[in-house]
Design a protein around this nucleic acid. Structure first.
Lengths: 191, 191
DNA sequence: CGGATCGTTGATCAACTTCAACGGTCGTGG
DNA sequence: CCACGACCGTTGAAGTTGATCAACGATCCG
């Protein structure tokens, strides 16, 4: 059950089987069906998710009433509204399963205890956040550099594994353009 | 000299004077003059900076040949090209002093040694990256939510301390709009 | 005092959105 | 297993936002 998590941890830290088993006791495994919400806007953001199988997305409702997807997470990715999670506040994001999914769930208080009692996990999460932060910075850069059309072509090229799994209107929602315009870009490309 | 760093560390970890002093030995203090580069595009990204006094910005040159500023850093902020730093690669960002500035500098290898020998600093950097990541996520959200005009008004409101210190063409470069359009927005607002 | 840099204004233009309408497809209940 | 409705992708016309270009005035600093 925990192999994917173990493999991910092994990339960053050295941990023996005994301690790893203790670490896993802080987590629950949960399954969610396609379109089911893991967290709904308005709730306290209690949970941090690690995807074992499937695909999640995080989104919010814009002032115009449309859904804006800000992140996808597939196998071995962490996901939560970090700002709300860290301060245990209400989130205005929802997290939803894009496919039937299986995730590790940890609650904020348990993650705090985990870090206190297994300091090696400070190192693990330091790496996780460090890389996530670097990726988020790249993302900001791409948004500023590329036109919407280039954003899509770049996404196609860099993340083909997403394009196959995710319906087009969610890709549009993630890239910040309208489904209509995405459709136009695709038509242009094919011809 | 190290008070600001100490105060920042105290927000996240408990560390006694003796250990803190050892920690500081991994850093150098350097001064940079306005417009001087701390790192120049094309170099290996060896350094991580912590601002003691002044203001830095990170920018790159777009395909159109203009400077795009992606981050400012003022007192008690960390700054580097995290992706290039982490993998010790060439960066295509430059980091430049916006004002005469005083910074702590640590080299990648030294930061690695620091973390090995003072595990408490894993916790410190875990917090630093966690918060930076959350802030970067908020940033992405703002970019998607707000029009350019709203971006400016929001920036005015949320970061007045920057607006006073930073020339208008750099604010435009940071917000991702042209100086001409920013000028138009300001004119509209005043009338 | 003089030159370079910075901020402003206005005209034109491109990128992208909005709205409305239509055809295809997927899944659900009968 | 079929039929129906909801959802999804596409197309085209009209409208908006913001970029580009050029020119000018102000200001800063050596």
């Amino acid at each position: 059950m925990f192999q994917i998590f173990r493999a991910h941890a092994d990339k960053f830290i050295e941990i023996d089987d005994e301690e790893f088993e203790k670490v896993t006791s802080y987590f629950r495994i949960k399954k969610f069906r396609k379109k089911e919400n893991l967290i709904t806007a308005g709730e306290i953001c209690k949970f941090h998710f690690f995807v074992l199988k499937g695909c999640l997305r995080k989104f919010y409702i814009t002032s115009k009433g449309t859904e804006q997807t800000t992140e996808f997470a597939i196998e071995a990715w962490w996901l939560t509204d970090n700002m709300a999670y860290e301060h245990q506040l209400r989130t205005d994001f929802s997290i939803q399963a894009v496919e039937n999914s299986e995730v590790l769930v940890i609650e904020y208080q348990d993650q705090e205890r985990l870090l206190k009692e297994h300091p090696i996990m400070e190192r693990y999460f330091r790496y996780v956040y460090q890389r996530s932060y670097a990726a988020a910075q790249m993302r900001v850069r791409y948004i500023y550099t590329f036109s919407k059309e280039e954003m899509y072509l770049h996404f196609l090229e860099q993340q083909p594994q997403f394009v196959q799994r995710i319906p087009q209107y969610l890709i549009a929602s993630f890239l910040g353009l309208t489904p209509e315009y995405l459709s136009e870009i695709r038509a242009k490309k094919i011809s």
